[in-house]
Structures are given as C-alpha cells and as structure tokens.
C-alpha cells in the first residue's frame, strides 16, 4: 500500500485515503480529431515496468487531484505535483534522470 505526499496539503497519505485515476498527462481529443487520435486518447495507455506518471486524488483529504512520478517496479516515488500542468516539473524530471539515466515516457525524457 503506497504512501504518497499530497502536494496541496502536504500530508504523507496512505493509499486508502487516495483514489487512483490512471495515467497522467493525457491530451484530450474532442470533435474534429481523427479516429486514430481519438482512439489513442480513449484507450491507449502506457504500461511500463519502470518510470510512470499517474493521477491520484486525495479523496478522503483535501479532495485535490495531483500527479505522481514513480517506478512501478521498485515502488520508488520520484515526486508528486499539482495536476494543473501539461508536463512534469523540471525538478522532478531531473530527479528521475539522476536515478534512471536515459528514461523516457511518452514524449517526456
């Protein structure tokens, strides 16, 4: 059972207080998008053994959605950050690079 730090209220919170929301940094495709792009948005997900970015909501706490960068293999957490962003903060990307040189995920590296 994971422990993640809520970046809003600062609480080191148990997974039971959180709600998982799947993969982070999806780009929404709306009307006008191609079938392929829309299918990717709806159904295609990363499933790495390693660095991953996820959505979590502090549902039994402050109610805020946040994003987490962690390793699905070793359970190491590289950091959590507010959901109001299109890509991970540089500081977190640097931290991942220090621990997992040469990592990449989607369009990030």
């Amino acid at each position: 059972m994971l422990i993640l730090r809520c970046p809003y209220c600062g609480v080191e919170t148990d997974e039971t207080d959180l709600q998982g929301g799947g993969q982070a940094h999806l780009k929404r495709e709306g009307p006008g998008s191609s079938d392929d792009d829309f299918e990717d948005y709806l159904f295609m997900r990363e499933n790495p053994k390693g660095v991953h970015f996820e959505r979590w909501r502090h549902v039994y706490g402050c109610g805020k959605w946040f994003l987490a960068a962690r390793c699905t293999n070793t359970l190491e957490v590289f950091g959590t950050y507010p959901a109001q962003t299109l890509e991970p903060p540089q500081e977190i990307k640097d931290k991942i690079t220090a621990k997992r040189p040469g990592w990449s995920w989607g369009t990030f590296q």
């Binding site: 709600q19 929404r28 909501r57 959605w65």
Partner: peptide
C-alpha cells in the same frame, strides 16, 4: 460531483 471536480481540476483548471 467527483466527475465534475476531475474535469475542473485536471482539464479546465
């Protein structure tokens, strides 16, 4: 309610 919060917080913040 959660569905609305999700879109408000994560898409149209």
């Amino acid at each position: 309610h959660a569905h609305m919060e999700d879109w408000l917080q994560c898409e149209w913040w």
